[in-house]
Design a binder for these strands. Structure first.
Lengths: 222, 222
DNA sequence: AAACCGTCCCTAACACTGTTAGATTGTGTT
DNA sequence: AACACAATCTAACAGTGTTAGGGACGGTTT
């Protein structure tokens, strides 16, 4: 009865893949800060130092986690409208990153890309190139859309509230602490938009994505 | 000559402001991971536990750092073209965040905004509202542009190279490790764009910003 | 069969981290 | 001179990643 959260059979031999498997479960259920060498080892029925026979260090675990998440992102098959393909790629990316909220910051901070990360990038560039974009324009476009997606999700996963009541409490606390007169437009937007029933920050994703895609279209015809 | 990097006079009394001052210097010169309670205390000529008489915990230091950086971002004065104002705001944001590379992730992960953070947001919304945007469109637009800027800089500050030769070494290492045939378009883009003399990823910022601003313009007239 | 070798795992330790409890100092006021 | 109070101290706790060195086990070679 000791172990409660990540139930992983500790029979199979310890190796890099099993360590990553366990790390993913722990990160998803308790956050990335719970992924420690001692914790992974305990989950694998082993001592911390033993992990260093399968992995160069904790960095390799983090790199591996990033690529596992990247592999989970479905890339649209070639052949089709670039706008549709890039749009779906963006939606899929957001969906997967929301399932692993710790992954966004990690993807940015880790700098050794794995095969899945490269494939995701390849699919983005391909969609633009086969859609008639020059190499230069494709580079600009994929950078713009990926920056937008990562930036949006980065904010989204760090929001300090999860439902409307928590949001109301949050905005209330902020507006109490600071004079509302200093931020008239922010105040207006909060009252008339944010605090309206049915609001969720995640809804802004689609409009922002449309903005970026429209901008990319405009960059084509000029 | 024990102390070498952050030379801060340790005469003045210890308080929250001085702690933040020291924290900023340490973070800029040695990275955010060097900002530890013991390090700040040492720099202030004091023991770590003493800091807790001036600050609730390390979180308050990090929150303070975020707002110090936000305060450094120059917001354009009211009255002018929205595209120009938002563009300058984006450029200024990027410039300041590049001076404090640790700040991007921190701004996203900390969830207690300070006055400077709110002012920056206020200025963005104001530019759109006074440019004729509805509350809804202004919300969409400011979310889109801020997501783009943060996402771009997040990638930019985490690039594992600083000059063209390091970039060449990096791409070379990646292309050795993985079969280039698996990523034909990425390969093409690398050869024809990334490895061209004068390339720097930061140059993509302007084109992406133009894309977002064009997209916002398009969202107005539809 | 006996010796060897490499893989895997262990214990122990090092130098760190944020944070708290409780004692001690120093300064200013009564 | 006595008190009060804020600021600082020492010591400790439960963690972190990582390395060194030793022991057990299996398979392969002599």
């Amino acid at each position: 009865m000791g172990r409660r959260s990540a139930e992983v059979a500790s029979r199979a031999p310890v190796n890099r893949a099993r360590a990553l498997e366990v790390a993913l479960v722990v990160a998803d259920s308790e956050g990335i800060e719970a992924v420690t060498m001692r914790r992974l080892a305990r989950e694998l029925g082993v001592e911390a130092a033993s992990l260093y026979h399968h992995v160069r260090g904790k960095g390799e675990i983090l790199d591996g986690l990033v690529d596992v998440v990247a592999a989970e992102i479905e890339v649209p098959a070639p052949g089709g409208d670039w706008r549709d393909m890039i749009g779906r790629r963006a939606q899929n990316t957001r969906a997967v990153l929301l399932k692993h909220p710790w992954a966004v910051s990690l993807m940015a901070s880790r700098t050794t890309p794995g095969p899945a990360t490269l494939s995701l990038l390849e699919a983005g560039i391909r969609a633009f190139r086969e859609g008639g974009f020059s190499v230069l324009l494709a580079a600009h476009a994929v950078s713009a859309v990926d920056s937008y997606v990562h930036g949006f999700v980065l904010q989204e996963v760090n929001l300090p509230f999860r439902d409307e009541s928590e949001l109301a409490a949050m905005t209330g606390a902020i507006m109490e602490q600071f004079p509302a007169a200093d931020y008239p437009y922010l105040f207006e937007l909060t009252i008339e938009h944010v605090l309206q029933p049915g609001y969720a920050y995640g809804n802004e994703f689609d409009s922002g994505l449309a903005i970026v895609l429209d901008g990319i279209t405009a960059s084509l015809t000029q």
